[in-house]
Design a protein around this nucleic acid. Sequence first.
DNA 1: GCCAACGTTGGC
DNA 2: GCCAACGTTGGC
Length: 155
Amino acid sequence: MTAQYWLMKSEPSVFSIQDLKRKKREAWDGVRNYQARNYLKDGMKPGDLAIFYHSNAEPSGPAGICRIAGPSRPDPTAFDPKSDHFDASSDPSKPRWWLVDVEFVSAFSQVLPLASLRDIPELADMTLLRKGQRLSVMPITAKEFQRIKNLAEKS
DNA sequence: GCCAACGTTGGC
DNA sequence: GCCAACGTTGGC
């Protein structure tokens, strides 16, 4: 199967593309939405590429590229009572929440502002740009991925 | 900080 | 199973 492309949101005040660059690799933990969980658990495959998106930021928008670095695995923070993402009702023998590990690929020279993406006709159908969508992890097409990458390289 | 949009929870 | 109340996301 050919590579899939994704968009993954993170608040840079919590974990930014620069943080990933420094750490090289990180577990994408704490996702507590079932649709996003399904993408992490069943959709993402090692080698897939993802746009690293800064949310709740100034500006919000695509900030770089990362790569899925390993197979999905249960999210250990769900079983850690000290974690903000602890889920007391998740049974360790039947994990409810999953994560993937991601590795740094590149950081854009500047974040592409979300508003600037709205001017690009080829991106008009992106889930990201739909009103009210709040998914933190979502698939994108190869074309959308390339278009965003090209925009970033030109800016 | 505001608030629209959405997901989840829980009473009935 | 309905749906109101509540909590969260995330742009602005």
